[in-house]
C-alpha cells in the first residue's frame, strides 16, 4: 500500500512545486501506471516513495508506515526500483555479482546468496548468463538483470521508472511480459512510470499526472471509453487498436466488450461477424 496525503515537493532554491498537494492511494498488489509528459513530475513520485527525494509538505505512507528521514532505510527495504539506463544501474562485474550486490548489503550469507541468485535468474530466464559481463549483454538483457537484482530482495513494491524507454520494441514487450509473469507468480505492488500508453494499458489502473497533480485516474477501459478526448488533449493519443474500435463505434458497429488490445479486438470483431 502506498498513500500520498497532500504531498508537495519542490527542488531546493526553486519556487515552483513539482508535486502539488498530491493525494493518491495505491492498493496492495495493484498494477498501476503513472503516465505524464516530460517534466510532469511522474518520476519525482517514484523518488518520493523511495525517499530518494524528501517531500516538503504532507505525508507519505508506505505499507502503513509513515515515511520519515529516520525510517527511510527500513522503508527502502520494501521497495525495488528499476531505472531508465540499463548500463548505469549495473554495479557488479558480472551478472552474478550484480544480483549479489543488494544481498551483500543486507548481510545475507554466501551460500544462501548463491541459491537465491540461481533461483531469481531462473525466474527471469537468464540463468545461462550468470557469469557474463555487462558489456556482453543487450540493453533488454541488462534490464532483465536489473529486475532480477530488485526482485531478489523480495520487495513488496516494484517501481519501474521509465525502465523500458531505452529499449527497442521487442525488448520492451519482453520486459513487460516478464513483469506480468513475475506478478502472476507472486503478487507485488507494481508502479510503472512511463510515457508509453501502450505499456500503461497492461496496468489495472492508469493515473495521468500533469504539473504535479492527478488529472485522470481510472482503469484503462474507463479512460479509453469515457476520457478519450481528455487523454488526447493531454498528449496521449489512444493506441491504434482503440482508435480503430472507436472509429467502428462511430460508424454504428459497437464492439462488446470494448477491446483494449489486438487480441480483444479480434475476438470482438469475430463476435460481431458471427452476429450478422
Amino acid at each position: 500500500m502506498i498513500k500520498f496525503q497532500d504531498v508537495s515537493f519542490r527542488y531546493r532554491d526553486t519556487d515552483a512545486w513539482v508535486i502539488d498537494s498530491l493525494n493518491l492511494t495505491i492498493k496492495e498488489n495493484q498494477k498501476v501506471a503513472i503516465i505524464g509528459k516530460n517534466g510532469s513530475g511522474k518520476s519525482t513520485i517514484a523518488k518520493l516513495i523511495s525517499g530518494l527525494l524528501l517531500h516538503e509538505l504532507g505525508h507519505i505512507y508506505v505499507e502503513n508506515d509513515q515515511l520519515t528521514p529516520e525510517n527511510l532505510l527500513d522503508i527502502r527495504k520494501k521497495i525495488g526500483m528499476v531505472f531508465q539506463n540499463p548500463e548505469n544501474q549495473f554495479v557488479g562485474m558480472t551478472v552474478k555479482e550484480d544480483i549479489a550486490f543488494g544481498l551483500e548489503n543486507r548481510g545475507v550469507k554466501r551460500e544462501v546468496m548463491l541459491e537465491k541468485i540461481v533461483d531469481i535468474l531462473e525466474q527471469v530466464s537468464m540463468l545461462e548468463y550468470i557469469d557474463r559481463e555487462p558489456q556482453h549483454l543487450s540493453g533488454g538483457q541488462k534490464q532483465r538483470i536489473a529486475i532480477a537484482s530488485a526482485m531478489v530482495l523480495e520487495p513488496k513494491i516494484l517501481i519501474l521508472d521509465e525502465a523500458t524507454s531505452m529499449l527497442d520494441p521487442v525488448g520492451r514487450k519482453e520486459m513487460m511480459s516478464l513483469v506480468e509473469t513475475l506478478h502472476n507468480r507472486k503478487p507485488f505492488t507494481l508502479l510503472m512510470i512511463t510515457h508509453e500508453l501502450n505499456e500503461a494499458i497492461l496496468a489495472d489502473r492508469i493515473i495521468v499526472i500533469e504539473k504535479g497533480k492527478v488529472v485522470l485516474d481510472g482503469t484503462p477501459r474507463e479512460l479509453f471509453t469515457h476520457h478519450n478526448h481528455a487523454l488526447d488533449e493531454l498528449g496521449f493519443p489512444a493506441p491504434y487498436t482503440i482508435q480503430l474500435a472507436k472509429g467502428l463505434e462511430k460508424n454504428g458497429f459497437s464492439l462488446e466488450p470494448f477491446p483494449l488490445d489486438q487480441e480483444e479486438l479480434i475476438s470482438a470483431l469475430w463476435k460481431l461477424h458471427l452476429k450478422r
Binding site: L73, R76, I79, F83, Q89, V91, N105, R110
Partner: peptide
C-alpha cells in the same frame, strides 16, 4: 553515470562496508 549508479546503489540498500557480506 556516477549519479545514476549512486541512486541505484542506494535503492539496493548500500550503506557502506559495515555488516556487508561478500559473494
Amino acid at each position: 553515470r556516477a549519479e545514476d549508479l549512486a541512486t541505484a546503489m542506494e535503492v539496493r540498500g548500500y550503506q557502506g562496508g559495515e555488516g556487508r557480506t561478500k559473494l
